[in-house]
Design a protein around this nucleic acid. Structure first.
Length: 269
DNA sequence: AACTCAAACAACCGCCGGTCA
DNA sequence: ATGACCGGCGGTTGTTTGAGT
């Protein structure tokens, strides 16, 4: 399995792209469209490997890419989605129109990770659940905490089992009590297009391993998958634009006494 | 002005799953 | 059935930039 780098296999240019190369690639894709990356370098006359072309297009040249700083709302959303999905950058990026997985990954690794680490309660795998107000939902020991976070780590581990690569940066911060409320995030309804936040669409991106936390399993999660999606969830997913009743769907998964209390912070619903 | 260091960003790499000949 | 290829993903590395001294 695997393969040697296509760039090193042949004598292809590596490193930063020049403006000329950008233009050539952009023009080529404008005419021929995306896809068939294997043929792009030759046809476009670029001395680059196909993967490099694809990456350059996806992460930089695509016209719908939003350049510039990550807004507070976007940052909030990234944190929340990361809580839920772990390092599934492409899935997270799929919820942030105009942002690439690479951009989000970089942002997480350089900014958010430090921010969350600076908040002692927030984000380590062994302080998964914590209530700093009444303590009711605090996990009493690390084993419990680890059990609830193991699933996403397992997934990452299995992904890397064969390669023997160590698993790093696999976080499971879904009970991050410092995370701001989604109601704040979406109160203007602007950070997500309606079609972008369909509950089922999001759930499609998950697998059962992602949901194997004992806390999640204790909830009647699958009921959510049936026809009884709560109205307020639909409201939020519809991007209804305002209102105080927005409840993110994974809040639902956590809405059990102190858990939800902890995660939501109590002031937002 | 020169240097150091950290942050930010772009790009590469290894791997996996799907597809197709 | 099999192997090569392609597209995609996440982790890591290299380079650039900017702040601080």
């Amino acid at each position: 399995m695997g393969r040697s780098s296509c760039c090193s296999r042949e004598k292809l240019k590596k490193g930063a792209w020049s403006a000329v190369e950008d233009k050539v690639l952009r023009d080529y894709i404008r005419v021929h469209g995306e896809g068939k990356w294997g043929k792009v370098p030759k046809k476009a006359g670029l001395n680059r490997c196909p993967r490099s072309c694809r990456l350059r297009w996806l992460n930089y040249l695509r016209p719908d890419i939003k350049r510039g700083n990550i807004s507070d709302e976007e940052e909030d959303l990234i944190i929340r989605l990361h809580n839920l999905l772990g390092n599934r950058w492409s899935l997270i990026a799929g919820r942030l129109p105009g942002r690439t997985d690479n951009e989000i990954k970089n942002y997480w690794n350089t900014v958010l990770k430090k921010k969350l680490q600076a908040q002692p309660v927030a984000s380590t795998a062994t302080t998964v659940l914590h209530s700093d107000r009444d303590g009711a939902a605090t996990l009493k020991n690390e084993k419990e905490a680890e059990a609830s976070t193991q699933c996403s780590q397992d997934r990452a581990a299995s992904r890397h089992q064969q390669s023997g690569r160590s698993v790093q940066n696999v976080h499971c911060n879904r009970f991050n009590s410092s995370a701001p409320a989604v109601g704040d995030l979406h109160s203007d309804g602007s950070s997500m297009a309606a079609e972008e936040c369909d509950l089922f669409d999001i759930l499609k991106g998950l697998d059962t391993e992602e949901l194997c936390s004992r806390y999640l399993l204790e909830l009647d999660f699958f009921q959510l998958l049936g026809s009884t999606v709560p109205q307020d969830t639909r409201d939020w997913c519809g991007g209804g634009g305002g209102g105080d009743s927005y409840v993110f769907f994974d809040d639902r998964l956590l809405l059990e006494g102190a858990i939800s209390d902890t995660w939501i912070g109590g002031e937002h619903i």
